[in-house]
Amino acid sequence: MAGSTLAVRHGAAVLAPPRTMRPEFSLMADYDRDLLASFGQSPDPEAAGDRPVVTHVDLVRQLLDGDPLGPVEPDLVMVSYALPDVHPFTTTSTQLNQAFGNRSASFAIAEQGLAAPFSALRIAAAYCRLGYCDQAVLAVLEQTTLPNHDPLVHGADLVDSGALLLLQSGSEGPGLDVHDVWVQCGPDDCARRLADVTASARSGTSLLVEGPRGGHDIQADGMEVHRHAERTYCTSVWMELAQNPQWAEQYATVVLHDTDPRSGTCSAAILRTAARPEPSA
């Protein structure tokens, strides 16, 4: 399969799932205090107190409920996130891998803010292009229980959320091929690149999907714009992609774009209508 293209096929999303009490997590108090102290911070008693939580593993279980991806045997399983898990010693990518038979290469991508899932998509596309991957599963996770006050999390009143995507090579069905993925430190540079994309896209068949805080200066002439309105951070455009499979039939180009409020870094993924097999004579 060397040289093949990866396409987004199916997905699932979850927003504000039920939380449960986890008294055992109170044992993390000393760890959290020491960790925050190394950065000159102190735990927020109100934020760190015993209260219901949802973990990354909880989000994965919610996303897998109902078997939304169907019978798949991925070669690659990835978890990406911008906010840490409430329990930092759980390897969620391994848990997700186990759900698909425990035969995949699996790892997590983090410490990049909302750029993490964009990096995951680029990595999966590279695996496929080099012939190492025919199917990949990507989970984008966001739990918002933190031991300290975080201006982004608490100022925007973020909610727990997640998205799950199946990425496949070949032409099994409707999908969106991964055409290009980038991360730009300068919003102006990103805007210029997106302007080139919109200029080359066919009018009336292109969609720009924006996160809740990005894209105010992006010129999307000739493109429809769809903005994610929920109180999320890194999961925003991925939830929209997972919940709108009809976009693969409606648009020739779908652009995912978001700007990280912490750094101003812009991330974009350009998706094109996946190649379809020619009808038999």
Rank of each mutant, 00 (worst) to 15 (best):
P68F: 01
W238K: 05
P261N: 00
D258A: 05
A116H: 01
M28H: 12
H257C: 09
P43E: 07
R193T: 14
V14P: 07
A99Q: 04
Q112K: 12
R262G: 10
H226F: 15
M28E: 09
R272A: 08
Q184A: 12
D30S: 10
T145E: 10
S203F: 08
Y233G: 04
A48D: 15
S206F: 06
A269Y: 03
N97W: 00
T91F: 14
G222P: 10
P151V: 07
D67G: 02
V137P: 00
A229W: 13
D196H: 10
F89E: 08
L36A: 03
C128A: 14
L121A: 03
T91L: 13
S280F: 13
D50G: 07
L256P: 01
L207S: 00
M1V: 14
A7L: 08
L146I: 02
L64N: 01
L141P: 04
S38C: 09
V159C: 03
I218A: 05
S206L: 03
P245Q: 03
D50V: 07
C234V: 14
D177L: 05
P277Q: 13
T94E: 12
R61T: 09
D85Q: 06
M223R: 00
Q143H: 10
A156N: 12
A16F: 13
V86A: 08
Y81R: 02
Q112P: 04
V77P: 01
L69T: 00
N148P: 11
H216L: 12
E172D: 09
L271M: 06
T259A: 06
G101L: 00
D189R: 10
A12M: 03
V57A: 13
H149R: 11
S38G: 09
P277T: 14
S4C: 15
Y81L: 07
Q250C: 14
R19S: 12
Y132K: 09
L146W: 05
Q184N: 13
L27R: 12
Q41K: 14
A105D: 02
Q95K: 12
R262S: 10
R202E: 08
V14K: 10
E24A: 14
L15I: 15
D67V: 08
L256G: 03
L15Y: 15
H87V: 14
D188P: 11
G264E: 02
G101M: 00
I218V: 15
L6W: 01
D34L: 13
L166M: 02
R192Y: 15
D58F: 06
